[in-house]
Every structure is written in C-alpha cells, then in structure tokens.
Design a protein around this nucleic acid. Structure first.
Length: 953
RNA sequence: GGGUGGUUAGCUCAGUUGGGAGAGCGACGGCCUUACAAGCCGUAGGUCACAGGUUCGACCCCUGUACCACCCACCA
C-alpha cells in the first residue's frame, strides 16, 4: 500500500466493477427500500447541491442495501422544458438563427441532438460521486413510457373535470413568450413611484369638496389605457354620490363608470382605485364581480397594441367597447409608453403628484423579464380536490417531513392553493393531448385516432393538435410511479411503491413534492382502494452555500463543481471556468479577484470520499451548509488516517496467525475486549443516527471511534503485545484477530459514507478477518451486540488512560523531551489501583514512555516530584534534574485554581437547602461525591505544593 | 403584513426526558517515537445574542427585544 491515501488511484476502478457486476440493481431478500432520484436536468451539470443531495441518498441506499433490504435507487433525468429550450435557443442565437427560422420540427431535432451530445455529462458526474444508482432502469421524462403516463394522466383528469381550459389572467413572460405558474414568479423589491392622476368627471359631476375630477394612484401608469372603471369603497362618504356616475379616461377618451367595491381601502391614497381587469390580478377579481369588460392593451411582447382587444367574461370579444388607442404609444414597450403617458398627462395638467414608492416587481425566474399579468387561453388543473387528500396524508402522518417544521410550510401553501396553469407556449416538452376542429371545438384524448373514435368525427373533419406543451413539473409530478411502469400494473410498481424516502431541498417542496403527493394519491391506490402516498418520508435538507454564506450562482461566480474538489483544480483554470460566458468584463474581474482570495492556490484533490463525508458531517437538520474547505481537508486527513491504520494492521497481520480458523487458539487481551466493546457502542450510535436522518451525528461517531478509540488508543495498545517477545502466541493471535476484525467492521460502518476507500481496504483485509465475498457493498451492516459491551474492560482502560494522561501532562507542561524515559512512583492507590498496575504495567510503560513504575503504599515517602492525580492515585514524576521548581509550582497553582473553582461551585449548591431538599436524591449524592473527590484532590495538591515550595527556600 | 429557522471558543458547527459546555479547523508549546508530519503529545480560549419569567437549578422551557437568513401575501 502507498504511504499516503491516493483517492484518484482507486475510485474509478471500483465504480466500474460495481456497476458491471450489477450490484446497484435490486436484489436483497429483505423488505423493499426505494429512493427516487430528483431527476436532474438532462443537459445540466453537477453543482454542489447535487453533490450534497446525492451523498445523502447514496448513504441511505448503501446502508439499507447492507442491511439486506431489496433496494432500488431509481435513476432518471428531466427534460426541463424552459431551461433546456433556452440553452438551445441561445446557441442558435449565437449563429443569428431563431427557433422560428427553423420551425418546430427542426428546432426539436436540434434539442434532441443537444441532449444526445450533453446528456451524458451529469450521469458521468453522478458516477464519479459514487452514487449507487440503478443505471439499468434509467428513465427520461420524455421517454415513450413516461410520455404515455403523462398523456394518460392528462386525459383522465380531463375526463374527471379536473383539467380545464380557460381564458384568464396568467403570469406572462414577454421574453420567453409563455405563461408561467405563480411559483415561477419572483417578486423583487424595487423602488418605484406612485403616480396620482386626475380622471375628469363627466356631466358636471363634482366631489364633495368641489373638484370635477377623481384622483387615482397607480404604480403602472401605462395600464391606464385599459382601465374600465374607477372603484371607491361603498361606505366612503366622500364618493358615495358619485357611484354610478362616469369619468372620462384621459388620453383614451372612453367613459368608464365609478363603482363601489370592498376591495378599496378608503384610507389609502385618495380612496379611488383605477380598475384594469386585463392587466392586474386584483382588478381582474373586481372586474369579474362587476362584469366589467377586460381591455387588453399589450401585445405578447409587452408592447402597446395598435388597437385594444376587449373581452367579456365568457371569453368572447366585447363588441360594444371602444378599443381605440392613442396613436402615439403604438408599438412602444411598456416602459417607454409609461414615460410618454406620464409626460402627456402632465402636459394636460392631470398629474396631481408623484411620490416615491416601494413595490414588488414580478420577475420570471428563468428569463429575469418583468412578468405581465396577461389575458390568454391556458390549461389548468383544478387542485382543490387533489389538495384535500394531499393535506390529509401529512396530517395523518402517512407522510412525514424531516425536519418536521416543513410540514407547516406545506400546509400553509396547500390550504391556499390556486389552480395550476399547466400549459406553456414552448416547443420542448410533452405536447398537450388536445385537438381542435376548424369550428374551435376542443377534443381531448390519448391520440388523434382516439379523439375521432370517441367523438365520432368524420375523417374529413380536419383536426390540429394544441400547439402548447405541458409544464415540466407536470411530468415530474408523476415521477414515483411513471418510472415504475405505470399505467401498467408492473411488479416494480407493486414492489417499490410507495417509495421509502424522498431526499430534496426545501426550494422544490411546492414545485415538486406537493404536486407529487397530489398526483400520486389521485392515481395510485393500494389493494384496499385507498390512495397511496408517493413516499413515507420527505427528508428536507438545506442549501449549499459558499464559505461566506452566499448562495452559489453562476452570476455571482462562486459556484463550485464537486468534481473540482474531488480531482482538484488550478487557480487559473478555476477562474477561467467561473468567468466563462460572462457578459460584463467588470463582473469577471470581481469574480477573479474573489476567487484568488478564497482559493489562492486553487483546490487540491481531496477525493470523493472526503467530499461525501464532509457533506454528511455538515448535514444537520434544517440548516443550510456553509461549505468549509478546512472541514474538507480535515476529512481528507481522516481518509488518510484510515488508510494508514489499515497499513499498520496489514503489516502486522499478513502472513501471521490471526486466529481465524475454526480451531484457532487465541486469547483476548484487556485492550481487545475494550475495543470490541467500544465498537458495539459505535455501531449502535451510528445506526441510530442514520435511522433518525442525523448524518452529522453518524459521521461524528464514526470519526471519533476510528480516530480516538481505534487509532489513538487501540493501535498503540496493540504494539506492546505484538512486539513483546515474551507474550504468548495465543495473546498475539488474539490481538491480530481483533485488529483485523475491528478494522473490517469499521470499514463496513464507513462504507455508506466513504464507499471507495472502504472497499479498497476491505478487499485486502476480508480474508484475514475470516470474511468472504466479492464486494463490501453487499456485506451485512454491523449490528451491535450488547453482550459484547464490557464495562469492566472499559473501566480498566479508562484508568490506564488517566494515568498515561497524567504523565503526559507533566511531560508536556514541563517540556520534558518525549524521547526521555521517566521513572514514575504511584502512591495512595487502593487494591484495585494496584491490581490494575500489575496487570497493565507494560502498557503504561510503553504508552507513557516510562523506564520504571514504582508502587508506594499510602504514607510512604515519594521523591520530590511533579504530581498528577488519577482519582485518589498520585502519580509522581521525580523532579531531580528534569523539572524546574518554579514551573512545577505554577502548574500546581493552575490545577489548584481549577479545583477551587469547582469546589466553590459545588459547595454553594450543596449548602443551598432548597437544592438539597428539592433535587432528586441521586443528583444530590452525585454532587456530594464530586465535591468530596475534588476536595481530596485539592488537599493532595496543596500538600505537594507545600513540599516543593519548601525545597528552594 | 403573516410565518419559519438561526444567534454557543478566532472560524465552521454539535449539544431534548433542564443537573459537570464539546468537536473539527485555526492559535500556542514540544516532537521526524519503526501506520500516518494529511502525523503524534500537551496547552490556552466561551457571563451559550440581550432582557425578564418559571424552577432548588436554564445553552435547554415560557414571554419579549435585537440582529441575520429564508418562505408566503392582492394594498392601488
């Protein structure tokens, strides 16, 4: 074995071996255990969030697989409609071509080409992370099978009246030219203005204070072109008499009514609100109540139309509305139009005032464009009935969120859910299975033939399919069952559904998790006909942030590719990667500067195992992760520690009697029994932590057991045995046996966290440990055996540790060279101390580097010494020639001060009668015992101090 | 406006039936001791955000405040 751990040398080899041998496929004989991967964008690439997410899933899957479960980790990718289409459009754009130049068919060919070309990137990266996904069952949301499921769901929901088509206000992205759902809109805090305009009253009407106009305030002046009313509050005395009168819309000239509606807050502004039903969601609701016409003044590019369109609430053109628009704004973008309109109104003396005003501007999360409320025909899912079942599933505990606080978020959103707009005016995605005849009738069916059959349409009636595609999340919502073969009744569906746990970030709870629950429970029933949940547990993890706590994003230039941490990357290359494709050179400079500051020497190769272990250690509940290179490096060192521990074990065990055979003769030492006992505790702790999704606790328990117990103590304790020529062969065999078997067990414990390293080493130790098998992946998970917890051995070793620590403390504090062998006198101990000394003299001498240990009965004279205490036992290191008197006095004073503080705290407590009377007796006893021990120690140190102080004076 | 989470050592974070405040990294001192200098040994460092309350006893439970982060929401 190499002297240091070289991750690059082993990782790829083992992954190929595992995959080629089919170890990732289901196979265990135990209960099914299934995780569905949140499908990454097929053309995307891995970021730190994926790295984290997959480390968690792979840890769970490998653990459960070792436990013997019939384990499936379903692989698949998502077509990611908007995101993918945008990438390809941008590529075409660079050549000066638009998708419209190509036409739909050719454009889709281009996307499929792009998918074929780049679609392997992320799957390759997932392999590098060690993810034990079942690649043989890989799916893609636009596969024939999954597309079939999508059509089936759409048709059935439509038949049940849960999908409908309607003309409504939607969030319209004027850059992408598509509707988007509420969730895809981000409201950005913006400093804008509140414009107060005067709308002249018609026919000489006047306000109470004698004005011949009403003042309305708006943040969006340009929409006034589409106003169809001015609303006041019905109880507002100021305007009561004006209700039913009209005002003349400036610039346009239309007469619009003054209406009364509770929506208006009389205390805000003038108490009058302009109503634009076609361009504002609130106004839309008001308009509907009052049957106002909807006047659309914008094109799909968010420019002012040549002529407005007016609709009634049946979606028909309203012929009686004047749709004339002023010539001056035609074709202007809304912001240009806004400026002109304000200027024109100002010229007419109709601007009352302009105030600064903070508002939220809606922005498309993909394009960044300002989203317009826009009147279009779209398809919707009626969610209320679906939500009801989905809420009940979480209320009843059929689905559990970890951490639980996310259930509140889920409930709050689900209980106030608007219908889901599922149609998108894109080309890349599942085409909506609806057909139109020339009369405008709509027919929904699985295909055109079915539509014709079902509606008995003659062959000569022309049909054309709806041009739109479905929201990507529509197909994602079916993920848990579409990947298992639904609508067919497959063995996989029966075996693995409901799945066990969903591992995901909180950011897609609404996009994905909630919709999966709704769709799954509607379509998948158990044998009794009750709705089946898609998963029993949702484990929600936080975001991976950079070292400053910033969200990682391409535009900030702080993204990290997990593989750059695995393989390492030079500074210049990292900068080049982060600044590539930057539009603004200035930004690129900043990013370069920042990157130089954060990674002055680039990033060293740390290996997959160290990265995964770091993610898992940092995966505490309900908290984002600030990614910390120091932590990563520490864990890389941990990998090296395991590697070198294995080297030591192999050097001492290979070719030697390791007590493996049936009739092997071996004897277990105290240290052997101790480490076996500690192993049981570690096994229990790690298993319990995993059961509770506490990967951080599991990782820490593993780390501590391996480093502190196994390496720091046990390996050191094994040396005196193995190197002692006088030790019996049976004892040596027992030690070798324990070294090897505990190592083998801890490799199994480590495997879900560090699959590559553990497998590599396991292959070398398995035979020595009496194990057989082709892979660690399929070895049984270690189960703690309470019968092997040995409290006596633990107490004995704790005693040894205390004595050694006492000597080491003196040595360290007094600057005595570690190589110098010391004599030590033990005094004041009882029979147990003496027995422990005699049984473990060799261990003490070796680990504390002592030349001799002398036992003194209580009261006997000890040489002038530096002294440490192990309980009542005094450890004396003679000072002659070694120890400076003043230094030792100072050290004793420090120890004394600590003891005095503790005693004073304890005495205070014990002299408080309320404490003594009220606290449980065992608590009081414990405090008394502590006080007695500390007082005894204090007395001994005081006597010692006095003796040394007398020396020099 | 409503809601959630956070505030513990210089940094990153653990710490639930309320009863001695921990880890990693960093710092300081000493060591190439035959597994590991990606290491070993030792040491220092914290009125657990703040203010009240409950309790014999609070990092932990309750109330309030401050600051940070996030989610949701129709105030023109």
């Amino acid at each position: 074995m190499d002297k240091t751990y070289q991750p690059g040398a082993i990782e790829q080899h083992w992954y190929q071996t595992w995959e080629q041998n089919g170890y990732f496929q289901p196979g265990g004989s135990g209960d099914p255990y299934c995780i569905m991967i949140p499908p990454p964008n097929v053309t995307g690439s891995l970021h730190m969030g994926h790295g984290f997410n997959n480390a968690v899933m792979d840890c769970l899957i490998r653990w459960r697989r070792m436990q013997g479960h019939n384990t499936l980790w379903q692989m698949g990718t998502d077509h990611a409609g908007i995101a993918t289409q945008m990438v390809v459009e941008r590529q075409l754009g660079a050549q000066g071509v638009t998708r419209h130049d190509l036409g739909r068919e050719k454009f889709l060919e281009k996307i499929w080409e792009w998918k074929a070309q780049s679609g392997g990137a992320i799957t390759g990266q997932l392999r590098r992370l060690g993810s034990s996904l079942d690649w043989s069952r890989e799916r893609f949301t636009m596969d024939p099978g999954l597309s079939n499921a999508v059509r089936e769901v759409f048709v059935r929901l439509h038949e049940e009246g849960l999908i409908y088509r309607g003309k409504r206000l939607v969030n319209w992205d004027p850059v992408l030219h598509t509707a988007i759902s509420d969730l895809e809109v981000e409201n950005i805090d913006t400093r804008g203005h509140l414009w107060h305009f005067r709308y002249p009253l018609v026919d000489g009407a006047q306000t109470l204070d004698g004005r011949d106009y009403l003042v309305v305030a708006t943040t969006r002046p340009e929409t006034m072109l589409g106003d169809t009313a001015v609303a006041v509050h019905p109880q507002d005395e100021r305007y009561r008499d004006l209700i039913g009168k009209t005002v003349r819309l400036p610039l346009v000239g239309r007469e619009i009514p003054v209406i009364a509606d509770d929506y208006v807050d009389p205390a805000f502004g003038s108490g009058c609100v302009k109503i634009t039903p076609a361009h504002d969601f609130n106004d839309y609701a008001v308009g509907k109540r009052h049957n106002l016409p909807l006047v659309n003044v914008l094109t799909s590019d968010a420019k002012i139309r040549a002529q407005a369109e007016a609709f009634d609430w049946q979606g028909a053109l309203a012929m009686d509305v004047d749709t004339h628009l002023p010539e001056a704004y035609r074709g202007d973008d809304r912001l240009e139009a806004r400026a002109k309109i304000v200027a024109d109104l100002e010229a007419l003396g109709l601007v009352e005032k302009i105030e600064p005003h903070a508002l939220k501007v809606p922005q498309g999360d993909r394009s960044g464009a300002v989203v317009e409320p826009f009147l279009t025909d779209q398809w919707y899912v009626r969610v209320a009935p679906l939500a009801k079942t989905a809420i009940a599933a979480v209320e009843s505990g059929a689905i559990r969120f970890v951490p639980q606080q996310y259930e509140n978020m889920y409930f709050a959103w689900m209980r106030d859910l608007q219908d889901w707009c599922i149609s998108r005016q894109l080309w890349w995605g599942h085409r909506i299975p609806a057909w139109y005849d020339n009369a405008g009738n709509v027919y929904v069916g699985r295909d055109e033939a079915e539509v014709r059959r079902k509606h008995q349409l003659a062959p000569d009636i022309a049909l054309h399919q709806d041009e739109d595609v479905l929201d990507t999340w529509f197909s994602s919502a079916l993920w848990t069952f579409s990947t298992l073969g639904w609508p067919e009744d497959t063995p996989e569906l029966r075996t693995f559904h409901p799945t066990s746990v969903l591992v995901t970030g909180f950011d897609i709870i609404f996009f994905w998790v909630a919709r999966m629950i709704m769709m799954t429970m509607h379509f998948i029933k158990d044998q009794g006909g009750s709705p089946q949940v898609p998963f029993k547990t949702v484990y929600v993890h936080g975001l991976v942030r950079d070292s400053e706590g910033q969200k990682m994003s391409k535009s900030k230039g702080n993204v990290l590719d997990p593989l750059d941490i695995v393989d390492g990357i030079g500074l210049e290359e990292l900068i080049a990667k982060r600044t590539s494709g930057m539009m603004q050179p200035k930004l690129a400079d900043q990013i370069a500067k920042r990157t130089r500051r954060e990674f002055p020497e680039g990033i060293a190769a740390h290996g997959t195992d160290a990265l995964r272990f770091t993610f898992l250690w940092l995966a505490s509940t309900g908290r984002d992760i600030k990614f910390d290179l120091g932590r990563l490096e520490g864990n890389r060192n941990f990998c090296n520690k395991i590697w070198n521990a294995a080297r030591y074990v192999l050097m001492n065990a290979e070719g030697q009697d390791c007590g493996a055979g049936e009739d092997a003769e071996f004897q277990l030492s105290l240290a052997d029994r101790w480490i076996i006992s500690r192993l049981q505790r570690a096994e229990r702790e790690i298993t319990e932590a995993l059961e509770g999704f506490r990967f951080d606790h599991a990782a820490q328990a593993l780390y501590e057991f391996v480093w502190s117990d196994y390496c720091d103590w046990y390996l050191e304790l094994s040396k005196p045995v193995l190197w002692d020529e006088a030790a019996s062969e049976a004892l040596k065999a027992g030690t070798r046996r324990t070294l090897v078997r505990v190592l083998e067990a801890l490799l199994r414990l480590a495997h879900p966290f560090m699959p590559f390293l553990s497998e590599e080493i396991w292959q070398r130790v398995k035979t020595l440990a009496g194990k057989a098998g082709d892979t660690l992946m399929l070895q049984p998970w270690p189960e703690a055996n309470a019968g092997r917890i040995d409290s006596d051995a633990e107490a004995d070793i704790a005693w040894i540790q205390r004595v050694i620590l006492g000597v080491r403390n003196i040595r360290g504090e007094m600057n005595i060279a570690p190589g110098r062998k010391l004599p030590v006198y033990l005094r004041g101990g009882d029979a147990t101390d003496r027995a422990r000394l005699e049984a473990n003299r060799g261990f003490l001498q070796r680990l504390a580097n002592l030349e001799a240990i002398h036992w003194l009965d209580t009261g006997a004279d000890a040489p002038v010494s530096a002294t440490a205490l192990a309980g009542q036992l005094e450890i004396h290191v003679p000072m002659a020639g070694l120890i400076d008197r003043d230094a030792e006095l100072a050290r004793l004073d420090r120890e004394t001060r600590k003891l005095e503080q503790e005693i004073s705290r304890l005495e205070g407590k014990l002299s408080n009668t309320k404490f003594v009377d009220n606290a449980p007796p065992e608590v009081v006893d414990r405090e008394r015992e502590k006080a007695a021990v500390a007082t005894d120690a204090l007395h001994r140190l005081a006597a010692q101090r006095e003796r040394i102080a007398r020396l020099g004076s």
